[in-house]
Write a protein that binds this DNA or RNA. Structure first.
Lengths: 253, 253
DNA sequence: CGCGTAATTGAAGATCTTCAATAAGGGTGG
DNA sequence: CCACCCTTATTGAAGATCTTCAATTACGCG
């Protein structure tokens, strides 16, 4: 039991209207093609700690992280927080992936820019658009895979393994950039993602640093000299290289 | 870390051909309407412990639990097992909800009957069938909601709370039957669902029994005299009454 | 009745959290 | 530029929790 989870203020949202995806510099945003010209995209600029609430039944409202790092999270009555997923630039989620009944929200782990595209006015058309539906299916499938792994991780890895896996996960996600990985979140956020507490995360990171498997340049920057060595410490496959849900070319087979 | 997780034998599958959903007594199986007459439904009769493997890319293969209790689970290299979901009669899952890469399978917790409906031969038609796609979306959405709760549970509830929540979950799932709830699974299965170990589950169940919140008639049967009392012991909403993913009437809004 | 599997329970040990004290940055105002 | 303050991170020690190990009991089945 961990009562140290943050009780964060729900931030107000600051939206600015833009033409659909005009300010979204994503190279291959698949959502763009489904957005009629009248549709309205908002770019939310959130400060660290601010949140976007998922409205009831807004299944066709999409959020794409443009800049910074966000997270989906739930909070229990007594303040315990669980981070469900970490959203990097290019990652997309939609209302259909959120739950109405349990409180779930998108939360800025760093200052960040979120593109909100509300396609619900066009629900009638999109409901009959196989490509669109296939795209949503693909997004949900990716999310399901990700949650499966996360769930197994929380259920069956000890704290040391969880942190190790997390470092590998973040490294995989940033492998396109360079070999230096940046942690875009606090120890508390890591703890709430891994079902641990802040102190434990810090202590375990120190142990991992001393073991030499990971080399820390600063508390938030590290390199992984040998990913094989990391893999040998884990009972499951080390996370795969990056791929964006909305850019994936898969299809229902 | 828990190495006591079962290393179960992967059971062979025993299929018998039937006309689509003819032997499926589900009152409102939404899949039926999408199954062309040529489609083939198999009814697998699995003994406790036997498994069905999800084949690569079989996104359009559906499994409906007809009888007994099954579970989806993953197993790590060293044998640690995590149960991802518990499937009661009427529950449906499809390949699109499974992950290819991580080992995931459907496993019989009791002897059970599983209806397998493979719609992949009709992929081309179904890909353009909005009703079908909406139905799949609904199934995936339900699964996502369920996994969100399960994940938060593993990350942020202590062992006592997890077992309590589990008992409430099973009670909610069987509320239509009568007030006596039956646990259709072993202590080990419960442990693997909750990320605990067998002994702990047993010990906690005894404590809960002694506390009087739940009344046990046998190791696998109990009643909940006061669900409010259960709710007061948990920091999150007690699980909702039963609803079958494939019978839900919701739609994309 | 005897055997094998599953469940229970106590005691010892490992793990993770809590508490408290200290250190490290980061920004602000002088 | 430096002193100050505030937040975050680190670390040790004590305590709570969960697991492991081992012994015992209960139950189903031939």
């Amino acid at each position: 039991m961990n009562f140290a989870s943050a009780r964060r203020m729900i931030g107000s949202k600051i939206g600015e209207k833009t033409p659909p995806c005009a300010s979204c510099e994503l190279p291959h945003c698949r959502l763009r093609e489904f957005a009629p010209s009248q549709s309205i995209a908002l770019v939310h600029r959130l400060e660290r700690g601010q949140c976007l609430e998922s409205k009831d039944g807004a299944c066709l409202r999409f959020w794409v992280t443009l800049d910074g790092t966000a997270a989906t999270s739930t909070t229990f009555r007594d303040g315990r927080r669980q981070i469900l997923s970490i959203e990097h630039p290019g990652d997309a989620i939609c209302g259909a992936m959120a739950t109405q009944e349990s409180e779930q929200r998108l939360e800025a782990l760093t200052d960040c820019k979120i593109c909100e595209l509300d396609l619900s006015p066009f629900a009638e058309d999109l409901r009959h658009d196989p490509d669109f539906l296939a795209g949503v299916t693909r997004m949900m499938h990716a999310r399901l895979e990700q949650m499966t792994t996360h769930l197994s991780t929380l259920g069956r890895l000890d704290s040391h393994e969880r942190v190790t896996y997390f470092l590998a996960e973040m490294a995989a996600r940033q492998s396109d950039t360079q070999s230096i990985v940046t942690l875009p979140m606090s120890r508390e956020d890591i703890a709430d993602y891994l079902g641990l507490n802040t102190d434990s995360v810090s202590r375990i990171l120190s142990r991992i640093r001393k073991s030499g498997v990971v080399r820390f340049l600063s508390p938030t920057e590290y390199t992984v000299p040998d990913m094989e060595a990391v893999a040998r410490r884990l009972p499951l496959a080390v996370p795969h290289p990056p791929h964006h849900a909305i850019e994936t070319g898969g299809h229902i087979s």
